[in-house]
C-alpha cells in the first residue's frame, strides 16, 4: 500500500495556516511525527482521517484520490484522535459493537473479535461495565481497540500514549510493532522517547511545514559532534542559555550539568552521543 501526500495545505485565514505545502510518501512501516504544539500534526492527521478537508493539495491511496473520494480510505483506516470521548452509558463491549457497525463490520465472528480486542487491551473484566466508570487510561485503551476493529491498513494515532501508564505504553509499543509489517502507521507524540522506540522513520514539523523526514540515524546525524555536556555555576546559567542552545539541565549539589548543542566545542565541555531529542530540539528551536 502506498499513501502519497502532495502539497497539502490547510488555510484558516489569509495569514493563518494549519498546514503548509506538506508533501510525503509513505509505505508500510511506522512514521513518527514530531513537532511542538501548533506544528500542524493533528491537522495533518485529521485530513488523512477524512474528517477535515484541505484547502489545497492531494492525498492518494494506491492512486485513488482520498480528498474527492473519502470513503475509499475510510474502509481501511483506523484512527485514534488526540481528544476523543465515548458514550458513558454504553459498556465497553457495546461501544466497540457500535463503532464496528459504523465501520461496516459484521458477520458471525464479530462478537468474538470484539472480545479478543478487549482482551488485547486488558479490558475483559471491565467489558460489561459502563464506560462512564472507566479511568482515563481505560478510555484510551478502548480508543486503541476500536482502531483495530476493521483490520485497518492505514493507522493514524494522534498522541496515543497520553493517559497510559508505563505498563500500558510498553504494551502499546508491542502492538504497533506487530502491525508495522502490513500497515502504514503514522503516530504523533510529544514524547520523543516514544517515537524513538517505535518509529522507523521520523518527520519533524514546525509551523505547519515539514522540516525534515528520514530514518532516525540520518536525523540524529544532523547534530552529530555538536552535542556537549558541561558543568557550570548556577548563576552563570542565564548567560550561558543566551549564547547556546541548551537542551537539558540537571541540578547538582554545587553546580549544574548542562547539555547543549553548539557548532564549536567549548573548553571543559565533553562531547556526547547525540539523540533524537537533541536533533528534534535543534531543528525546532533554530
Amino acid at each position: 500500500m502506498e499513501l502519497q501526500i502532495e502539497n497539502l495545505s490547510k488555510k484558516y485565514s489569509s495569514e493563518k495556516y494549519g498546514l503548509r505545502d506538506f508533501s510525503i510518501k509513505l509505505e508500510n512501516g511506522i512514521l513518527g511525527l514530531l513537532g511542538p504544539n501548533g506544528a500542524g500534526k493533528s491537522t495533518l492527521m485529521k485530513i488523512m482521517a477524512t474528517i477535515s478537508k484541505p484547502t489545497e493539495g492531494t492525498i492518494t491511496l494506491d492512486g485513488r484520490n482520498v480528498i474527492t473520494d473519502p470513503n475509499c480510505i475510510r474502509k481501511v483506516i483506523g484512527y485514534l484522535p488526540q481528544d476523543f470521548g465515548v458514550y458513558p452509558n454504553l459498556t465497553g463491549y457495546e461501544f466497540l459493537r457500535y463503532i464496528a457497525s459504523l465501520k461496516g463490520i459484521g458477520g458471525p465472528n464479530l462478537r468474538t473479535k470484539v472480545m479478543q480486542l478487549l482482551e488485547a487491551v486488558n479490558l475483559t473484566d471491565a467489558s460489561r461495565r459502563q464506560i462512564g466508570t472507566y479511568s482515563g487510561g481505560m478510555k484510551q485503551r478502548i480508543g486503541i481497540a476500536q482502531v483495530l476493529l476493521n483490520d485497518p491498513k492505514v493507522l493514524i494515532f494522534d498522541e496515543p500514549t497520553v493517559g497510559l501508564d508505563p505498563h500500558e505504553r510498553v504494551q502499546f509499543r508491542n502492538l504497533i510493532s506487530e502491525l508495522a509489517d502490513e500497515c502504514i502507521i503514522i503516530l504523533s507524540s510529544h514524547i520523543v522517547s516514544d517515537i524513538e522506540t517505535i518509529a522507523d522513520q521520523v518527520a519533524i514539523m514546525k509551523q505547519g511545514r515539514l522540516i525534515t523526514k528520514g530514518f532516525q540515524p540520518d536525523i540524529i546525524d544532523l547534530v552529530a559532534n555538536k552535542v556537549f555536556e558541561i558543568y557550570i555555576d548556577k548563576n552563570n546559567l542565564p548567560a550561558f542559555k543566551e549564547e547556546n542552545l541548551v537542551v537539558n539541565t540537571i541540578r547538582r549539589k554545587d553546580n549544574m550539568l548542562v547539555r547543549f548543542i553548539s557548532e564549536q566545542k567549548i573548553d571543559q565541555a565533553v562531547t556526547c552521543n547525540a539523540s533524537l531529542e537533541d536533533a528534534y530540539l535543534f531543528l525546532t528551536k533554530n
Binding site: 461496516g104 459484521g106 458477520g107 468474538t112 473479535k113 505498563h167 508491542n174
Partner: peptide
Amino acid sequence: SNNQKIKLAGLSKTSTDY
C-alpha cells in the same frame, strides 16, 4: 509486558456489513 505480544494474527475474521 515487553515480552507480552498481542496476537493480532489470531484475531477472528469478520465480514463487511454496511
